[in-house]
Amino acid sequence: MIEISRHISFGQYVDNGSWLTRLDPRAKILCFAFTVAAFTYISQFAALAFCFVFCLFLQWLSRLPLRYVLQGMRMFISFLLVLYAFQVLFYTSSTQANSIIWHWGVLTISWEGLIHSTQVDLRVIFLYYLTSLLMLTTSLVDLADGAEALLRPLRRLGLPVHELVMVFVIALKFVPLLITEVERLSIAQATRGVRFGRGNPWQRIRALSGIIVPLFMSGLQRVEMLSTAMEARCYRAGYRGWRRSKLHALQWTGSDSLALACCLLLCGLLVALNLVSPF
């Protein structure tokens, strides 16, 4: 529990100058959205195998060490394995009676349950891989700029796009900071002899509020500092007539169009494969 941050590589940008890293964030976000949509749609093993090949190709393009990427996914996969066991054991459907392997009380293992859960979990792993790859190859600032550029049409509907993207960026930036804070607080509370998850409900709430209250306090104090710092640098969101200029303007190039075209083609193939394949 105490060293959480060592096991999470989620959201750590690696600038290794690969083709994926240099792609325009708008193109990357669009490709990501299409691929996620396609991956969510598919339900056949043949298409899942194609997804695997696709992920391998992306991995090769990103030039990231495979071990590093997998290390970041280790905790998630172990969590998913536990979930998988539950999914299989408690799987219920009207047609599973034909394929039962083992049965005891409410617990059942059937071929249908196994196949269904495997498909669902493989898909989740691929989706998680895609997300972590996007985070590993794109810096947060780029991601925010891209998202803001793509969502700009929504401004016409009166939606505060810039503000919402800002909230998102701050949230993601603060997660590692807050994780460190949780580690520090839980060590501090353990030193004082606090035992978590013991005693009656009232004692449990008290023990946990020893972490939660200081966590909120430190977060809110950082709010104070950050908002003062931003306003000192003339950040005025939500103020009429205020516009922000960019140090690095986004540029759409030929390779971005190529990436988008390839991605659309692959997603189309994936959907077609899912429709025609028999299993």
Partner: peptide, 16 residues
């Protein structure tokens, strides 16, 4: 600005 930052930090806490 303060509200945007607060929402951001609290959203970070939610994710955490």
């Amino acid at each position: 600005t303060r509200r945007i930052v607060t929402a951001g930090v609290l959203a970070g806490l939610t994710i955490l």
